[in-house]
Design a protein around this nucleic acid. Structure first.
Lengths: 335, 335
DNA sequence: CTGAAAGCGCTAACAG
DNA sequence: CTGTTAGCGCTTTCAG
């Protein structure tokens, strides 16, 4: 069927061992023979049998990129940027396997021989089963996006708390003191961090937040829409809203339009993530950009170094966020 | 290190062959022994070595999902829906490997032993190198999204031409006769099909299209924005615009706002794809929905059946589109 | 620098 | 129904 090492060896009257050495850049070979072998190998369209190589080297050449679930990622852009970032680092000899961890009946089947390393884009504590399994089995692991307690693990995180803080300060600098929040999915690390930044900013500026300024959301446009409508029913409606992501901000803006309110004249809106559409909606949405692709690529680089050098000192790496000022935030209206 | 079949065999005083049979649901085994073996295997946390299995079965248990390129997919939503659709069909014993074909220096390294089958989400003719390689090497292949000439191949396509036709008829039914188009990336199958539907609808209704009503785009919001500005400079501006995807439609809407034009009172806009944000922008965007996840899942099912049953009669499967009427299309303004 | 031989863990004839 | 034997294609000792 396919060309094997032995085929190449036979033609050149050398042993298959020698061919293997040539193919693997071994120093134990005459440059001349190596050249000859490489040439005929290419000519014959030789492709190594990864299964055989994997079997003897005890390596799968698979890298797993797992999301908490595939059916409900934070947003399509988030998913795409993550895959793209990771992919840009993984070399051709590795396969990047993408899946939701909820698709595996038992995470213990994810062993070292099936995956040389795992990148976990983690949203919730439910993923801890996989984390502890990987630690126990010594499978190289990098966790993205969610801080895990275990200090032996490499963690790549975006500085969401600081980003949220900056967003709210931006609102305050525009004179706002009646600031509401649209929260994201309960239990998600991102939700906790961003809300924390929000609260700290208010506290630092001696601004109170009444209960009616806190609305729950689920990171979807729909939920932002619903949450905003609820906020509008407050006895003393807010003059500014911080949505924990841009999707919800867009939903909120829709509710505002429907209520006949102008942005930012009547009410300012700021989001989080800098989704693709945010600069193109009207008014364009002020937001906090986080470099998701960079989180992915940084994590992938770390993982590859763990796999290749075995260096596995846990660390927490933070990727900075950036405040993006556009047209959805304006001065607080007079009351 | 890890538990092997032999370990299990030794404990139970049976041969490793028997254990293998138990693990593989072979009929050649006593149900009693099988039960015993399965129990201790589970107890020992036995996980099969995929590399060894692959080597002897000559199967990789990898399915490749390839995009023309990873760095520039049509849209994040498109990417996400595709992966999700395919993933929902692929079973746990397979790894779904996601990549851009431009990441492989030579497509000929993608051989049957590395991928049991390939799903190609194809955008342009450049992908034909992979297609012909797969055909030649008899690698099971399903091509999504772009019609390929080879009739032996399974092709899953969305009925874009008909969808575009319906969109334009929708405009015409609202009294529009001055209809412009914002085209997508040159050479993409989607561009060709959708434009064809557009032109046919106009022709069927005896509507002329001047050159100045044709603007080039690249499926990005930015390009839609630029294209719309160009369209507005026409000697006799259009009253309706068909953008070949929603991203460009959003860009066009931004240009319209900036020009002080109202949608749909002054100008109607219709898009394509029904992106996530389309129902939440203001005004909400009328568009043509195509079930991308369904294209992916249908393709994956087909591929699995080719792999498992070897049935490889080529066919073209069309997934229907649906006209979504929202608020961006209104009656043509009086002239 | 090169070759012969062993073996990775598994499945698949082939006997019994 | 069970066990013995061979071998998948490759890398890696170990001798030369």
């Amino acid at each position: 069927m396919s060309v094997t090492i032995k085929d190449v060896a036979k033609i050149l009257h050398v042993s298959h061992t020698t061919v293997s050495r040539a193919l693997n850049d071994s120093p134990l070979i005459n440059p001349e023979t190596k050249k000859r072998i490489l040439e005929t190998a290419k000519q014959l369209n030789y492709v190594p049998n990864y299964s055989a190589r994997s079997l003897v080297r005890n390596r799968s050449y698979n890298i797993g990129l797992f999301f908490s679930t595939m059916s409900q990622v934070t947003s399509p852009g988030f998913f795409y940027e993550t895959v793209r970032g990771v992919n840009s680092v993984i070399t051709e000899s590795y396969n990047l396997v993408v899946n939701g961890i909820d698709r595996y009946a038992d995470v213990r089947t994810l062993d070292k021989r099936r995956f040389d390393g795992i990148i976990l884009m983690s949203q919730s504590e439910k993923d801890d089963a996989l984390v502890s399994h990987a630690v126990e089995k010594q499978i190289p692991l990098v966790v993205l996006n969610r801080k895990v307690a275990d200090t032996s693990i490499v963690n790549v995180l975006s500085a969401d708390r600081q980003g949220a803080y900056n967003a709210v300060v931006h609102l305050i600098e525009h004179g706002h003191t009646h600031i509401a929040i649209i929260e994201g999915e309960k239990g998600f690390q991102a939700t906790i961090e961003r809300k924390e930044g929000f609260l700290t900013a208010l506290r630092d500026n001696h601004i109170e937040i009444p209960d009616e300024y806190i609305a729950e959301g689920h990171y979807t446009m729909e939920s932002g829409y619903t949450a905003m409508k609820q906020l509008l029913r407050a006895a003393h409606p807010p003059t500014a809203v911080f949505a924990l992501n841009d999707e919800m901000a867009v939903g909120a803006m829709k509710a505002l339009y429907e209520a006949g309110l102008r942005i930012p004249e009547d009410l300012s809106v700021i989001g989080f993530d800098d989704s693709q559409f945010s600069s193109f909606i009207t008014p364009s949405l002020s937001t906090v950009r986080r470099a998701i692709a960079e989180v992915g690529s940084t994590g992938a680089k770390k993982l590859m170094s763990i796999i290749n050098n075995g260096d596995s000192t846990g660390e927490k790496i933070y990727i900075d966020t950036e405040l993006i000022q556009r047209d959805s935030v304006g001065p607080a209206p007079k009351r």
